[in-house]
Structures are given as structure tokens and as C-alpha cells.
């Protein structure tokens, strides 16, 4: 095989981060969670945080994150990840702490914890995976489901008169003085992944400053919940999700008064 010979002469420019375990991920093919896990762990590896970081993953598809991230982690009850992260950070202030939450968790059942954690300016990173649906329970409507989006609990499409509006919680929490860095990213193309990685880098750098909460929304996909092939979800993200949830920084430290 000529490939092997070639590899000998080449240098490895990308490999699975050592901060991921060898566990086979349970995520469906093409799931954005898995990409986000991998990039998060890449940043943890590159920044040398593996031994000084504690993650929190609450109920939702990513509740098994501790199987894949080779770091200290705590599972959390549905909606309570940021409270759990608060408890950890308060007693271990010299450690890096992050929560990794889905839209149902962060923006529905855990809205109070989300807002108050950020309002206290807890020095943690919140990674918010927004795929507009409840993946783990089988594709029900989420607070961030789009207008007209068909889910198993909005079978005729999300009706604003009945179900209310897609909740733009990221814009909402950006108003809080405790929020230090708020950005919306995605992981569906090489470019968006690179930007997400940069945002994670920023967030962990900022956590060293003890200036407040960093919040990264990741507009993601759910091929199984959306009943699409992974490839089709890429188009859906571009055409449907991003107009409602535009990418980019919402609050950066230069905008902070302190």
C-alpha cells in the first residue's frame, strides 16, 4: 500500500484528542453533540487543562458525556447543570468548570438556574447546544424549536399562538451584567467548527480572569429528531436555523463596562 509509505514521510496534522476516551459514542450518525465534544476536548488538551477541569453534563443526549470526556465530570439532574457547576466552582475556585447543556435543559426546565447563574457572574463556561428539539426523549418540541417546526409534540408544526415563540435565550442572557462573553457558534462546517474552537479558547482564557460567565451557544443538528439524513441537516441549519439564530459574538469583553 503506497499510503503507508507516504505516511512515513508525512507528519500527523490531525488526530483524535487524547482527552477523549476510547468509548464508542452512542450519538446518532452525524450528531453535532459528538463534534462539540471532540472540539471541546481538543481545546482542553491544547490548553493543558485536562487535570484542572471539571465538567457537568445534565439530562439530555449528552448526559453520557462523562463516558467520552477523559476529565472529572458530574452528571446533573435535568435543568440543574449550572447550579451543580456553581456548587463545584464555589468550592474549587482554582479549577476550570464548565456545563454542557441542551436546549430543553438550559432554556426550558433550567431557565431559572441559567439566568441566576449568569446573573451571579459565576466564573464558569456554559456550552449550550441548540438543536431545536428534544433528542433523548425522541424528538419532542423544544423551547428553541422553529416556527412551524414539526416535532412529535407539534405534529402540525409549532404554532406561535399555541406554543409561543422560539426562545432566544442567548440574546436574553447577554443583557445580564454577569455575562462576560456571549457568542453563538455552529459545528456543521469546517469553518464554523474552527470558529467554535476559537470561542472555546477565548472562554477558558476569560475564565482565568474571574470576570463572569462565558456562554457559547452552538447551533447544532439532530438528524434523528429532525428525521433527516446528516447531509440534509446541513442545509436545514443554513436555511432555517441560522436566520433565526444568527452566528457571531453577542457580547465580547470590550463591551463590558468593567
Amino acid at each position: 500500500m503506497p499510503e503507508e509509505m507516504l505516511i512515513d514521510e508525512m507528519q500527523c496534522v490531525y488526530q483524535k484528542p487524547g482527552t477523549l476516551t476510547d468509548e464508542y459514542m452512542h450519538y446518532c450518525p452525524g450528531c453535532g453533540h459528538a463534534v462539540a465534544h471532540k472540539i471541546l476536548m481538543e481545546v482542553v488538551e491544547e490548553m493543558g487543562l485536562q487535570e484542572d477541569i471539571i465538567g457537568v453534563a445534565p439530562v439530555g443526549c449528552s448526559v453520557f458525556a462523562y463516558n467520552y470526556m477523559n476529565i472529572d465530570m458530574q452528571e446533573a439532574a435535568h435543568g440543574r447543570a449550572s447550579a451543580v457547576a456553581t456548587g463545584i466552582k464555589r468550592v474549587r475556585p482554582d479549577k476550570f468548570v464548565f456545563s454542557y447543556q441542551g436546549d430543553g435543559d438550559l432554556a426550558a426546565i433550567g431557565t431559572a438556574e441559567t439566568i441566576h447563574t449568569i446573573n451571579r457572574g459565576e466564573n464558569i463556561l456554559i456550552v449550550f447546544i441548540n438543536n431545536g428539539i428534544y433528542g433523548m426523549t425522541g424528538g419532542q418540541m423544544a423551547p428553541t424549536s422553529l416556527f412551524g417546526q414539526k416535532t412529535s409534540t407539534s405534529p402540525y408544526g409549532r404554532d406561535v399562538a399555541h406554543n409561543g415563540y422560539p426562545l432566544k435565550i442567548t440574546e436574553l442572557i447577554a443583557h445580564l451584567p454577569g455575562a462576560y462573553y456571549v457568542t453563538r457558534q455552529a459545528v456543521h462546517t469546517p469553518n464554523t467548527v474552527r470558529k467554535f474552537k476559537k470561542a472555546l479558547n477565548n472562554a477558558f482564557e476569560y475564565q482565568k480572569l474571574n470576570k463572569g460567565t462565558c456562554f457559547i451557544e452552538v447551533v447544532s443538528n439532530c438528524p434523528s429528531g429532525w428525521k433527516m439524513t446528516p447531509k440534509e441537516t446541513l442545509t436545514y441549519i443554513e436555511e432555517k436555523m441560522l436566520p433565526e439564530y444568527p452566528l457571531g459574538d453577542i457580547k465580547v469583553p470590550t463591551q463590558n463596562k468593567n
Partner: peptide
């Protein structure tokens, strides 16, 4: 609800 989950986090952190 938040306080008991803060307890969970902090107790978990030893």
C-alpha cells in the same frame, strides 16, 4: 431546587 443541586455539585467536588 438550585440549592440542593449546588449541594450536589459541591459535595461531588469533595
Amino acid at each position: 431546587v438550585a440549592s440542593i443541586n449546588m449541594i450536589y455539585g459541591a459535595a461531588g467536588a469533595g
